[in-house]
């Protein structure tokens, strides 16, 4: 039940993070930028617009994909938040979260290709290519974390393992490489420059988003923003956060702890999503995949290091 209660919380937090992202991005370009709550205004505005379904699309798939994508991404984020708040979790929930993130991406792809627009089809094929690149290294790095926490697949146990072991997981060589791998995969999973190839604005006119408008677009954008939130939260709690290393904070009660985690996740969001978006140009699909070959190699190296005990 706490899960359902978490939905509004996740909604507010993700859109707020997205607002911070846009404001920072604008300030780095010497612009004033939208107010921090602009994503809320956008969401409300989009929900009030007309529902248009293109004639060449298959209506049932076109529409249900949007609701399912928004729901699955919010479910994934809520699972994480519930575990952090309730300090409990069940076995395999980390796999559930990763599955939900992947399903959001797959659903948006399907939505794009069902729109009947050639740009949507191209977005679909590009997204498949990108998935090959980033999904597996992400999973490998997560498995490394679970190995180091004593072979557990439960999220809170992994976080707790860091508290007990008194060492931040990111600071041991094998796990440090794993955190680097995960950080390099976040821009691709979040769909930002330099890896926003499936939804490139100038090349394929937003790829899968091209035929979506009104409430459908609102839900899909929400799904994207919640996915970004999930990824940065995951990164911070698994790789950086350890209550023992921040004794000042953990001395207070758990709400301060939660606030600390959220601020840390915001910092991760800024570094892994906003900074690449501002500083880099977009890559072509072949070049991006060649980059991810290196990331694959790095993840296997870190897995090997962890196996031998580093």
């Amino acid at each position: 039940m706490t899960l359902a209660v978490m939905f509004p919380g996740v909604f507010v937090l993700s859109l707020l993070y997205s607002g911070f992202d846009r404001k920072l991005h604008a300030r780095m370009q010497r612009r004033v930028g939208p107010p921090l709550i602009q994503p809320f205004y956008d969401f409300v505005k989009l929900m009030n617009k007309e529902r248009i379904i293109p004639a060449a699309a298959s209506p049932s798939v076109f529409v249900t994909v949007t609701a399912l994508a928004a729901a699955s991404s919010m479910l994934g984020a809520s699972v994480l938040m519930t575990n952090l708040v309730m300090e409990a979790s069940f076995v395999g929930d980390i796999m559930l979260v990763m599955y939900l993130v992947l399903m959001t991406a797959a659903l948006t792809m399907i939505g794009g290709s069902s729109s009947g627009n050639p740009y949507g089809a191209i977005g679909f094929s590009r997204r498949v290519g990108m998935l090959l690149g980033y999904e597996v290294p992400m999973l490998i790095s997560l498995l490394i974390v679970s190995y180091r926490s004593g072979l557990t697949l439960s999220f809170y146990d992994m976080v707790a393992a860091q508290s007990i072991a008194d060492v931040v997981l990111a600071f041991s060589p094998g796990a440090a490489l794993a955190s680097l791998v995960f950080a390099l995969c976040i821009p691709a999973a979040a769909g930002v420059v330099p890896f926003d190839i499936p939804e490139a604005k100038t090349e394929v006119a937003y790829g899968y988003l091209i035929e979506y408008g009104g409430p459908y677009l609102g839900l899909l954008k929400l799904a994207k923003e919640v996915t970004n939130f999930t990824l940065s939260l995951l990164f911070f709690t698994l790789f950086i956060y350890a209550p023992q290393s921040f004794p000042v904070v953990s001395a207070y009660n758990e709400w301060v702890n939660l606030l600390f985690i959220l601020v840390g996740a915001l910092a991760v969001y800024m570094v892994t999503i906003t900074l690449p978006r501002t500083l880099f140009a977009r890559m072509k699909l072949g070049q991006a995949l060649r980059f991810y070959v290196w990331v694959w190699a790095l993840s296997l190296v870190s897995a090997g290091l962890v196996m031998v005990g580093y």
């Binding site: 780095m28 370009q29 010497r30 612009r31 420059v193 330099p194 926003d196 490139a200 604005k201 100038t202 978006r277 501002t278 500083l279 880099f280 140009a281 977009r282």
Partner: peptide
């Protein structure tokens, strides 16, 4: 040209 390759920040700087 910078905008077409996705480099929004350079586009803003040059137009500035």
């Amino acid at each position: 040209m910078a905008y077409e390759i996705g480099y929004d920040t350079l586009f803003m700087q040059i137009w500035n």
